[in-house]
Simulated assay, not measured.
Amino acid sequence: MTIRNWIKFFLMSLLIGGGVTAISSLFIRWDFFQPYLVAGEFGEFIAALAWMVLLGFTMSVIAQAGYFAYLTLHQVGVNIFRTLTLWNWVQMLLILVVLIDLIIFRFAPGAETAKDWLFYIGLLLVLVFGAVATAVQKVKMTGKKHILIPSVFFMIVITSLEWIIALMGRQDNINTYVALLLFPLVAVNAYQLLMLPKYNAKSEEDRKNLEERRKARKLLKIKQ
């Protein structure tokens, strides 16, 4: 990828992270924003919303680091297990392990009531259905069925590792951030998975155009 296209990719991911966090925070943390609006403190409201955008930017950067780490991991996995089929089976096993870990070691310690369990199961469904929907769309875009499992693996396993920042917390209002941080991670990771090939293709096109311009300039100098 060229530097120009990488910057576009980075900034768009950043905007998605910030925008999704800001919008979701208005629903998830309405109790935080409402007093400012009731009191007419619109400056404080905007400052609070800006803080949420900044939080989204941070999660976007974490998601981008996680994605490029996964690209390396995927290649290493294929090299170690020799075939993509075997590596896919390993990824399926890891997906199952991560989901069990989320339920037993992350959700269970903080779930004291049925309402808590509904909350956590709802977030788990967001993660799983978001992963499956993104993976299915990836297959449709590429026409390659074998990338279904790697896509689900990335969306569930890598997103869960990025989400661990919130899941390991035990503060009184930690559930708010557990929910709030999931949405930008899913959104940014879905965008990266679906859109990176387009940026790569655009980079390849830009390199070809640049090479053609260089040849044209050389030809012009020869004629002169």
Rank of each mutant, 00 (worst) to 15 (best):
L96K: 05
F153I: 13
Q75R: 03
I121F: 03
R213E: 11
W117Q: 06
E205A: 15
A133I: 15
L161R: 00
L219H: 06
F81E: 10
A39L: 12
A201E: 15
S160T: 11
L196F: 11
L86W: 00
E204Y: 04
L84R: 14
I174G: 06
V139Q: 06
I158K: 01
K115H: 07
I100T: 08
M155I: 04
I103K: 10
G66A: 12
R82G: 03
E162H: 03
M12S: 11
L127T: 05
V20T: 09
K138E: 10
L15K: 00
N79W: 03
V186E: 10
R82Y: 01
A63K: 00
Q137R: 13
I62D: 08
N88P: 00
L37W: 03
K208T: 14
F10A: 15
L161K: 05
R170N: 13
V132G: 04
L14D: 03
F68M: 10
I80S: 10
A47N: 14
A131S: 15
N79A: 12
W51D: 09
S24Q: 13
V132I: 15
K202F: 09
A48W: 00
T142S: 12
L193G: 06
Y199V: 12
R106P: 06
E112R: 12
A135H: 10
T85E: 14
I100S: 11
I156C: 11
I62C: 11
Y67M: 14
A39F: 01
A39P: 00
G169Q: 11
A190R: 07
L124H: 04
H74W: 03
F81R: 13
K223P: 07
L124K: 01
G77M: 05
A187L: 02
L196Q: 14
G19V: 04
F107C: 02
R106M: 10
D116G: 08
Q171C: 03
A22M: 14
L181M: 14
L167G: 06
F154M: 08
